[in-house]
Simulated assay, not measured.
Amino acid sequence: MKIMDYLSEDRIKIGLTEKTKSGILEEMAKLFLNGDIVDSENMDEFLKDLNEREKLSSTGLQDGIAIPHAKSPAVKKMALAMGTVKDGVEFDCMDGEVSKLFFMIAAPENTKGEHLDLLAEISKLSYDEDLLEKLENADKSLEIIKLLEKF
C-alpha cells in the first residue's frame, strides 16, 4: 500500500487557513468534494463522523503530524487529503506540540482494515525527520507529491 494510491494533487492544500481543530477538520473535509469522494449534500454527515472519531481519542500524533479519519456512509470510496499549516495548530497531540502536517482519511462505512493500513503507512513518515521538514516547508502541491512518491 502506498500513500499516493489515495492522494491526488487536488486534495492537497498548502497553508490551511483555519486555526482551530474543528476548523481544520472542516477545511480538510471539503477537499474530498474533489474526486467524487463525498458529495456536498453529505458533507455535514462526514463532518459529524470525523468529530465523533475525535471524541474517542485525538488523532493528533506526534512530530507535528495529525491523521484525522473516519469511516462514514457519506464517503463513496477511500481517499486521502493532505494539508499544511506553517505555524501549526493545537490538535491535542500526544507530545503536546502543535500539528503542522494533516493527513485526513475518508473511508466508506463498510471498509474493513484498508484504512488502518493507510493510517500505519502515514505514521511511518514520523521516522524520517528530514522528510517531515521538507513536507512542512513545501510551497507547491507537486513538490509534496514528489516527496511522497519517493517515500
Score class of each variant (00 low, 15 high):
2 K>A: 11
7 L>M: 15
10 D>I: 11
10 D>H: 12
11 R>D: 14
14 I>Q: 02
17 T>H: 13
17 T>A: 12
17 T>E: 15
18 E>F: 05
19 K>L: 00
19 K>Y: 00
20 T>I: 01
21 K>G: 03
21 K>C: 04
21 K>I: 02
22 S>E: 10
24 I>P: 13
27 E>W: 05
27 E>N: 10
28 M>I: 10
30 K>L: 05
33 L>R: 06
33 L>N: 08
34 N>I: 10
36 D>E: 14
36 D>W: 02
36 D>H: 11
37 I>W: 01
38 V>Y: 07
38 V>A: 07
38 V>W: 04
38 V>E: 07
39 D>N: 14
40 S>G: 07
40 S>E: 15
41 E>M: 13
41 E>D: 15
43 M>V: 06
43 M>L: 15
43 M>A: 04
44 D>E: 15
45 E>W: 02
46 F>Q: 04
46 F>S: 04
47 L>C: 13
49 D>I: 00
49 D>K: 07
50 L>V: 05
50 L>W: 02
53 R>A: 01
54 E>F: 00
54 E>M: 01
55 K>N: 09
55 K>Q: 13
56 L>D: 04
58 S>Q: 06
59 T>R: 01
60 G>R: 01
60 G>N: 03
60 G>L: 00
60 G>T: 01
61 L>R: 07
62 Q>V: 04
63 D>E: 14
66 A>P: 02
67 I>Q: 08
69 H>L: 11
70 A>Q: 01
70 A>N: 02
70 A>C: 03
73 P>M: 02
74 A>P: 06
74 A>E: 00
75 V>N: 03
75 V>R: 05
76 K>I: 01
78 M>V: 06
78 M>Y: 03
79 A>D: 08
80 L>Q: 03
80 L>K: 05
81 A>R: 08
82 M>K: 07
86 K>C: 14
86 K>I: 15
88 G>Y: 10
88 G>N: 09
89 V>N: 04
89 V>L: 05
89 V>S: 06
93 C>R: 15
93 C>V: 07
96 G>V: 02
97 E>G: 10
97 E>L: 06
97 E>M: 08
99 S>K: 00
100 K>C: 04
100 K>Q: 13
100 K>V: 01
100 K>L: 00
104 M>D: 05
108 P>K: 09
108 P>T: 10
109 E>W: 02
109 E>Q: 12
112 K>N: 13
114 E>I: 00
115 H>L: 11
115 H>D: 09
116 L>T: 05
119 L>D: 03
120 A>S: 15
121 E>S: 10
124 K>T: 12
124 K>G: 14
128 D>G: 03
128 D>I: 04
129 E>I: 00
130 D>Q: 13
131 L>G: 06
132 L>A: 04
133 E>M: 11
133 E>I: 12
134 K>L: 10
134 K>Y: 05
134 K>E: 14
136 E>G: 08
136 E>N: 13
136 E>Y: 06
137 N>A: 08
137 N>E: 14
138 A>M: 09
138 A>V: 12
141 S>G: 11
143 E>L: 09
144 I>F: 09
145 I>P: 07
147 L>M: 11
147 L>C: 09
147 L>G: 09
148 L>D: 08
148 L>I: 08
150 K>W: 04
150 K>H: 09
151 F>M: 10
151 F>N: 13
151 F>P: 13
